[in-house]
Simulated scan of single mutants.
Amino acid sequence: MNSLRSIFAKLPSGLLYSAVILSAMYGCGTSQAKTDAPPPAALPVIKAVTLPTTTFQDFSASVEGTRDVEIRPQVDGYLTNISIDEGDYVRKGQTLFTIDRRPYAEQLNNATANLQAATAALENAKINVDKLKPLLSNNVVSDVQVKSAEASYNSAKANVAQAQAQVEAARINLGFTNITAPSDGYVGSIPFKTGSLISRGMAGALTTISEVKDMRVYFSLSETDFLKFKEKYPGNSVAEKVKGMPEVELILADGSVYPEKGKVETVEGQFDKTIGAISLRASFPNAQGILRSGSTGKVRVPTLHAAALVIPQEATFELQDKVFVYTVADSNKIVTKPLTISGKTSNYYLVTDGVKPGDKIVLSSQSTMMMGGLKDGVVIQPQMVSIDSLLKAKPLL
């Protein structure tokens, strides 16, 4: 204090007046800063609650028709007509392709002529037998002659049967020149044109007919997911557990949800060692023909939770691959807690550990983190938000 007085004593009168004023202002500012401390930050806070909810898990899937039937020729020849086009929907029995029928019509004519000749020979042999039998009783001819005539008759009879078989084979081959659809479905690619020479042993098929009234959708579970699947659903066997699964959804390639729900039907008997996964098959109705064989998508499998502790995702923040929340403890002090996540919806986390029902949680943790974050022990002014109003703004699903 004496040093300050000595300094002021040496200053000119004008400077001394200014120094006194600055000293007074500095003292007032310090006092004002001490008395006007900022109030605790007002932040929205909710209570953790348990709610019935449904979570979803998506799996990549491929779509196939109930039957994908390859159409192959059963006789050789030139294509004279293609009655359908790629992508057409055809009915069972509808003509698809026509093969040149003239060679097979001639084969049928030839077989028919052979049958007629064999039938005539049979009649002649029968006449000969009928003529010799009375003569044998009168000892005009020998027994050997009669037996020889009967043998000729039996041979002629066999020739007729063989000729009839040849006629039937020729008729079948002629029918094979008209190739028809084995079932309802959509036509695949057609790599051949009118005039192409085709044969029974060729490598490729004429086309493929995909039966699409009901579609089969195949997806795979990893070993971990499969173990969870066996624990999740009731039943002693895998088949019983499959029956206990809820209906599944199909997410199409554009992200839209297919309007019909499907049912998981089967699980393969073993894992694919190359990818470490096991395949499941779901069936989806396809009355409108929206799904096509060969398309892709995702199967969405729901999991029902009777009472799950749900935390809004906006109330959490991530740090070093862990999820945290700011909880409000006694005296409105902040306590940071890590969460154990068991699943999530589009807006909420399902939590198994870290907080319990009734705990108060800062709702705006993410925005708070962007502003620098809170620290343990910091006091806030809670602004309670009801879970009902939050659910209206951000649904649970």
Results as ranks from 00 to 15, higher is better:
Val328Tyr: 01
Thr296Trp: 11
Thr327Tyr: 06
Val325Arg: 10
Gln381Asn: 11
Val335Ser: 15
Gln381Glu: 06
Ala315Ser: 12
Ile380Asn: 03
Asp353Phe: 01
Ser364Pro: 13
Leu374Met: 13
Lys298Met: 14
Asn347Gln: 13
Leu291Asn: 03
Gly343Asp: 08
Ala307Asn: 15
Thr336Met: 12
Ser342Asn: 09
Leu390Gln: 00
Lys356Ser: 11
Ser365Asp: 04
Glu318Asp: 12
Ala306Cys: 07
Val310Ile: 10
Val355His: 03
Ile334Asp: 06
Gln366Asn: 11
Lys360Phe: 13
Asp388His: 02
Ile380His: 04
Phe324His: 12
Ala315Pro: 08
Leu363Tyr: 04
Leu374Tyr: 13
Met370Cys: 11
Tyr349Met: 06
Ser295Leu: 15
Ala315Lys: 10
Gln381Phe: 04
Leu309Ser: 01
Ser293Ile: 03
Glu314Gln: 10
Val323Leu: 09
Glu314His: 12
Gly358Met: 03
Ser389Leu: 03
Leu304Pro: 13
Gln313Ser: 11
Val325Ile: 05
Lys356Asp: 04
Ser364Ala: 07
Thr327Ile: 08
Pro357Ile: 02
Thr345Cys: 05
Val335Trp: 15
Thr316Asp: 09
His305Gln: 11
Leu390Thr: 00
Leu309Met: 00
Leu363Trp: 02
Ser386Trp: 00
Lys298Val: 10
Tyr348Met: 02
Glu314Leu: 11
Gly354Pro: 04
Ile334Pro: 06
Ser342Phe: 03
Asn347Glu: 12
Ser346Gln: 14
Gln383Val: 13
Ile290Ser: 13
Ile290Lys: 15
Lys322Ala: 15
Val299Cys: 12
Ala315His: 10
Leu319His: 13
Glu314Gly: 08
Leu391Met: 01
Asp353Tyr: 02
Pro338Met: 09
Leu374Arg: 08
Ser346Trp: 14
Thr327Phe: 09
Ile380Pro: 05
Ala308Asn: 01
